Simulated scan of single mutants.
Amino acid sequence: MDAIQQHMIDSYRAAQRWEAPPPPPGRHDGSVLRAIRDHWRRTRPARPARPARPGGSGPSGA
């Protein structure tokens, strides 16, 4: 059973009980992913600074 079929069943059950239907699948995906990203950014340990490369500031072309 996929998400759409489950949503249809849940909507039918809600209608039988005179309740509000559930939100459609995927409606809150963006906000959930943003919340996970923000939580991860707040709780991860800080990265140590990278040491400078010997011999210059970038990759050598020759």
Rank of each mutant, 00 (worst) to 15 (best):
Q5I: 11
W40P: 04
R44S: 00
H28G: 08
Q6Y: 00
D10S: 15
R41W: 01
P25D: 02
D38P: 03
R13I: 13
T43N: 02
S31F: 11
R17D: 11
I9C: 07
P54V: 03
Y12A: 13
H7E: 06
P21E: 05
R13M: 13
R47T: 10
W40L: 03
Y12T: 13
G58W: 00
A49C: 01
A14W: 01
P59T: 07
G61V: 13
S31E: 14
S31T: 12
G55W: 02
A35K: 01
G26N: 04
P48Y: 06
I4R: 12
P24G: 10
W40E: 03
A46P: 02
H39E: 02
P59W: 09
I4Q: 13
P51R: 15
A52E: 12
A15L: 14
M1D: 11
A35T: 00
P21V: 14
P24A: 15
P59N: 09
R41I: 02
A35E: 03
P25L: 00
H39W: 06
A3P: 02
R50I: 01
R34E: 10
R47P: 05
G58S: 11
D38R: 05
A20N: 11
S11L: 05
G56Y: 01
E19S: 11
R53H: 03
R17L: 15
L33S: 08
P24W: 10
W40V: 05
G56V: 00
G26Q: 00
I4G: 05
D10P: 00
H39A: 04
R50V: 03
G56N: 00
A15R: 14
P59A: 12
Y12R: 12
Q16V: 14
M8Q: 15
P48M: 08
R27N: 09
A49M: 05
V32R: 15
I36Y: 09
G61M: 12
P25F: 00
G58M: 00
S60Y: 04
D38L: 06
H7I: 03
G26H: 01
P23M: 04
L33R: 13
A35N: 01
Q6K: 07
P54E: 07
A52L: 10
Q16F: 11
D38G: 02
P45W: 00
A15D: 13
R41G: 04
A49E: 07
G61R: 13
A35C: 03
R13L: 15
I9Y: 10
A62M: 05
A20F: 08
A35I: 03
G30E: 15
D2I: 06
R53C: 04
G55V: 02
R50D: 09
P25I: 01
